[in-house]
Amino acid sequence: MDFTVGVAMTPLDQLPGIARTAEECGYSSIALPDSLFFMEQQTVDYPYTPDGSRMWTADTPWVDPLIAAAALGAATSTIRFYTQVLKLGSRNPVLLARQVGSVANLTGNRFGLGVGIGWAPEEFEWCGVPYARRGKRVDEMIDVLKLVLGGGMVEHHGEFFDFDRMQMSPAPSEPVPFYVGGHTDIALRRAARVGDGWTSAMIKFDDLVGVIDRLRILRDEYGRGETPFEIQAVCVDRFGRSGYAELADAGVTDIITVPWIFDGHGFDSPLEAKQESLHRFADKYIHGKDPV
């Protein structure tokens, strides 16, 4: 099982140091979040908190995850990066294919694309995209992205997107993995049908087990039960060696963690404190040096 470092709401100047330390310590990946902007008034509830409120403010730092992946890729040599998750619904898939292909090439295929629809109507409408029928549009966007990133001269004539024969070069020399987020049954079906894995928001263990079981059923339905498939989890009630063993037994392949939180450090804590936490967590759980 792999361990990935989540860096949501981290000051931007700390990201290169965190990435280099995570690589040194043996973490597999950096999970890069996505947030376009903070609207003063939200018209729908945020789906992953009990009261629907956001966990960040107008001043919380964010960076475009594709730009971050390219920058951090230049500062490291082996650690991977994936978006967790990029909000597809407000973006154009042709432009996005250019960006994703560039990041994959610049990082030496150390990039995975975690995707979701997006939850806020404002993110769609203020970017010139209708909120209605967003799920169907995202399904077609994934088709377009995979088509263009596959290389060669391609064309697409769909319900939402239409273009004649064209080619983007260079194509990634390896397929870019797609990880699909979302906890609804529609999202799980999307992950089972087209994803190389599923990635969670904050979730409790019992709910996570139910999702993994459902994904197994759906992947069998789509004839994909034997293909490799990652389960990337942000589990909020299983920690420590025994907790991580439970997650592995349940089918989790990648635990997304924020080690400095366990040491009482906040998102705006100094870089040095976070680096010490990265080392401490890795020694205990990745390398098994420190008995529990």
Rank of each mutant, 00 (worst) to 15 (best):
R137F: 13
T76G: 07
Y82W: 14
A58F: 11
G118M: 06
V148D: 11
S269L: 01
T107G: 07
M1N: 02
G151F: 13
M9W: 13
L72S: 01
S90M: 13
G151R: 08
V144R: 00
A120Q: 15
G251S: 13
K146N: 10
P61Y: 03
T184N: 08
W260N: 10
S53A: 13
S90D: 02
Y244G: 08
G158N: 07
G73S: 04
W260V: 09
T78K: 14
L218R: 06
F267P: 08
R193I: 01
P172G: 00
R280P: 05
G108P: 09
V144W: 01
H156Q: 00
V234L: 14
I255H: 06
A19P: 03
R219G: 05
T107W: 02
K204C: 00
A31Q: 04
T257W: 09
D268E: 14
F81K: 10
W56K: 00
D206E: 15
V100F: 04
L215T: 11
W56V: 09
F267N: 12
R216N: 04
C127T: 13
V176I: 07
P259E: 11
W126M: 09
A75L: 03
P270N: 05
A250C: 11
A187N: 04
N109G: 10
V85G: 00
Q84A: 13
W260I: 14
T83N: 12
F124G: 11
R80I: 03
R134V: 06
F178N: 02
D213T: 05
P177E: 03
A187F: 09
E140P: 04
A104Q: 05
E230F: 06
T21H: 03
F160K: 10
E246H: 12
I30A: 08
L86Y: 14
I186R: 08
T199G: 00
E221K: 04
F178E: 08
Q167R: 10
F124Y: 15
K146P: 01
A120N: 15
P228F: 14
R137Y: 11
W119H: 12
W198P: 02
G240L: 09
Q42S: 11
H157F: 01
W198V: 02
